[in-house]
Simulated scan of single mutants.
Amino acid sequence: MRKLEVKDLKDFNINIVNLKEGTHQYDFIIEDSFFKNFDHSLTDKGSLKIDLTLEKTSNVIAANFHIEGFVELICDRSLEAYEYNLKSDRKILFKFSESEQESNDEIIFLHPAVHEYNFSTLCYEFIMLEIPFKKLHPKYQDEEEWEDGERLIYSSETASEEIEEKEENKSDSEAVDPRWEALKKLSNNKEN
Rank of each mutant, 00 (worst) to 15 (best):
F34P: 14
Y82R: 13
K49S: 14
F28A: 06
N37C: 04
H66P: 05
T43G: 05
S47H: 05
G69M: 05
N64M: 11
N64G: 08
K45A: 07
D39Q: 14
S88Y: 02
F38P: 01
K36Q: 02
E55F: 11
L93R: 01
I67D: 13
K56S: 05
N85Q: 12
K36P: 02
I29D: 13
D32W: 05
K45D: 06
I50R: 06
E80N: 14
F38S: 00
F38L: 02
T53Q: 11
S41H: 06
L73M: 06
L86Q: 00
R90K: 15
K87C: 12
F34G: 04
L54Q: 07
A81K: 09
D39H: 13
E31S: 13
L79T: 07
R90V: 03
E55P: 08
C75D: 08
I61L: 07
G69R: 06
D39M: 12
I74F: 04
I50S: 05
F65T: 15
F28C: 14
L42W: 01
L73H: 02
I29W: 00
F35R: 05
E72R: 03
N59S: 13
F28E: 14
V71Y: 00
A63S: 15
N85M: 11
F70D: 13
G46F: 01
L79V: 08
T57N: 14
E83S: 11
T43N: 04
G69A: 10
L73F: 03
N59L: 04
F35M: 06
F70R: 01
E80S: 10
E55Y: 11
F38C: 02
E31K: 10
R77K: 14
R90E: 12
N37E: 10
I74D: 07
F70G: 12
D76I: 04
L54A: 13
I50D: 11
L54P: 09
R77Y: 05
R77L: 07
A62D: 04
F94T: 00
L73D: 04
E55T: 09
L52I: 10
G46A: 02
F94S: 01
V71D: 03
F94Y: 09
G69W: 01
K91F: 10
N37Y: 13
F38T: 02
D89Y: 01
S88M: 07
I92M: 10
D89E: 15
N59C: 00
D89L: 08
Y82D: 03
I61S: 03
K95L: 09
K87Y: 04
I74C: 06
F34M: 11
